[in-house]
Amino acid sequence: MDKQKVKQIVLDIIAEIAPDEDLSDVKSDIRLRDQLDLDSMDFLDIVMELRKQHGIDVPEAEYRQLESLDSCANYLLPKFEASATA
């Protein structure tokens, strides 16, 4: 697992929950909400899919860590690594 793979996992989830969006040119350092039509309910869906598909829990106080692909990668990578070794 590396940051690039984490970003791809997040993009794959976004493709499921926001199927109308063009994800071919999502910038890693820009907030997802500033470049895609995502609302707060969509972020709850991202959190839910991380939980369902990958067993990753994101506490409510840390939702803001998911605001961009870069922040997702930084925040989620240790969780994926911990999950893999558990």
């Binding site: 309910m41 869906d45 839910m48």
Partner: peptide
């Protein structure tokens, strides 16, 4: 079927 009746998997929708 999939989540052992754990309600944290219940959708907010």
């Amino acid at each position: 079927d999939h989540y052992q009746e754990d309600v944290k998997f219940w959708t907010h929708h």
